[in-house]
Structure formats: C-alpha cells, structure tokens
C-alpha cells in the first residue's frame, strides 16, 4: 500500500488513535479538500498557524459539515467530510439532506462509538451495555446502524470499513473517489482511552471486532456485498468467540453471560439482514 503520511509527525493525537490510522487513507485522493466538524480531529489537526494534516482543511461547526462540503463541491471535486459519530448524531439531518441531494462528496464517519473529544459520552452508535461517562451503568439503548440507514438513502456508494483492515478501507476510498455523487463510508475506529484498552492494541481490537462478527465489512455500489475479511466470517464457526472482543475492553466490564448472549443474538440478526441484502441487491 502506497500511503503518503498526510498526518504529520508531532500531531497531538492520543497514543493508538484510530483516526490517526484512518486519516492516512485520504492520501489516495487527488487534491482533496477535507471538511472537519468539531471532534477529536479538530484537535489532532493542530494549532494555527501550523497544522498536522498535510491537506487543505476546513474546520466547521458540529452539524454543518456535509452542507459546507456541498457548497465547496460547487467549485471543486474530491471534497471529503471527515467526521465522528458525534457530528453524525447532532448533524444527522444535515447528513441525510446531503445524501438526498446526492451531493458530489465523500463522507467518512470515523466511529469510535462515543463522544470522545468531550470525554467519552454516549452516542447513537455506542454499543448496548457499554459504559461511558454519561452511561456509567452501561448504555440502555441499542446502537443505530448508520451505514444501513445511509444505504436506504439510495446513494451510489455506501460501505463499512475498519482501521484494522486498511487495505480494504483504502480500496473503498479509491473506489468512492471515482464515483460521482454522494459516497458514504462508515469506519470502525476503536478508541483506546474511550473503550479502555491498551493503546498498543487499536488494530488488534479493530480486527477482533471483525473476526468476532461484531463489525461487518460490506459495500454497496449498485450491488451489495460482504467484503474483505468479513466474507470468511459468514461462517459463524470461523469467528473468534465474541467474549474475546468484549472482554478486552474496559467499557464492557461486568457484562453477564446473558448480556453476551443477547449481544450475540443481535449480531446474528444483523448478519441475517446483510445476507438478505447481499442476495437481493445484486446486479450480477
């Protein structure tokens, strides 16, 4: 993989930051402009007059990013929104509106499953039962499936990806950049301080999510298909035990066996749904 280091050394990201890994994929884009709403990346991008992202970056308020990108796209190709699950929650109508218009932009949601920049508060994509500072006893609500919601906007390209499988993510970014219209990639980004695991294990944890079947790599480009490593995990017997993925994270401390079974059942439901999509939305 030929990835230029668009995130420069000395940037203020935490050790093991998944965004710092994921951002590298943007180097495959030709002359991009990156729109960044408030979030961890606001900090990672560095302090004026210097900056740590070696690309033109437009910093914007939380809920505005896809709309600002839409405006920029009236003059330029390759406008990318790089945002978190927080900006996605607060700016969901902005995101949905942009998708409905089929704006010629790429939106990457680097999802660390909580509002990490403000100190680990629950988000719409926080896992059920995960502890955050605003759900100290564990989240009571389900997580929303962002990529599937975006798929239902009938946009030309939707994919999930993981910082644990950069080759798959980079391929998807490249593919998206060649498509005109609204492209959406939901990037799974395990956060060491937020999920409470050792900062040397970001890639490992991201891979465990995929290997346990909890995070599923797929894409839609007119046809829907499971991609990359996830293809082999259609076969449940090949997956690693879900507990391995959950137990490595401090945020799941205190899960009962029943909780784990419930999570597993819900994951199975998602696999069933994706299986239907793969067999239904298939042009081949």
């Amino acid at each position: 993989m030929d990835l230029r280091c668009v995130l420069l050394p000395g940037n203020p990201s935490c050790q093991g930051c998944p965004h710092a890994i994921g951002l590298k994929a943007l180097s495959v884009l030709e002359n991009p402009i990156v729109v960044v709403p408030a979030g961890c990346t606001t900090i990672i991008a560095g302090f004026n007059p210097k900056q740590s992202i070696d690309l033109p970056v437009v910093h914007v308020p939380f809920a505005s990013a896809p709309a600002v990108a839409c405006g920029l796209s009236k003059a330029y190709d390759n406008v990318v929104v790089w945002m978190g699950d927080g900006a996605t929650d607060i700016g969901f109508s902005t995101l949905s509106g942009s998708a409905i218009r089929n704006d010629n932009i790429l939106v990457v949601v680097s999802d660390n499953e909580a509002y990490m920049n403000t100190g680990i508060q629950m988000s719409g994509t926080t896992f059920w039962k995960a502890k955050t500072t605003t759900t100290p006893a564990g989240k009571r609500e389900e997580k929303k499936d962002l990529a599937l919601i975006m798929l239902m906007h009938r946009i030309p390209y939707v994919a999930t990806a993981s910082v644990g499988y950069m080759r798959d993510f980079v391929r998807k970014v490249k593919k998206a950049s060649k498509i005109k219209g609204f492209k959406f990639i939901h990037l799974h980004s395990p956060c060491p301080p937020g999920w409470r695991f050792d900062s040397s294990k970001t890639v490992e944890v991201a891979r465990m999510a995929v290997k346990s079947g909890a995070w599923i790599l797929w894409e839609y480009d007119g046809s829907f298909r499971i991609t990359g490593m996830s293809r082999m995990f259609r076969d449940k017997s090949k997956r690693i035990p879900l507990t391995e993925y959950l137990r490595v994270q401090g945020r799941f401390k205190g899960l009962t066996e029943e909780d784990v079974r419930t999570i597993e059942e819900r994951i199975d439901e998602v696999w069933k749904l994706l299986d239907v999509l793969e067999n239904t939305i298939n042009k081949a």
């Binding site: 308020p61 809920a63 505005s64 709309a67 405006g71 920029l72 109508s93 942009s98 409905i100 218009r101």
Partner: peptide, 26 residues
C-alpha cells in the same frame, strides 16, 4: 446559478458558507 435545496436553514447558510469559501458569489 445553482440552487441547492436543503433540509434546514442551518444547512442553507452552511452550503453558501462552503460555496463562498470556494470563491463563488453566494
């Protein structure tokens, strides 16, 4: 000119912020 239909006023001003930033009269 291009007319961009949006889902909110917040996005209306965000869109023209983006286009003005790119140098287009908005």
């Amino acid at each position: 000119a291009e007319f961009v239909n949006v889902e909110s006023e917040h996005s209306a001003l965000s869109v023209v912020y983006g286009s003005a930033l790119a140098g287009l009269r908005s």
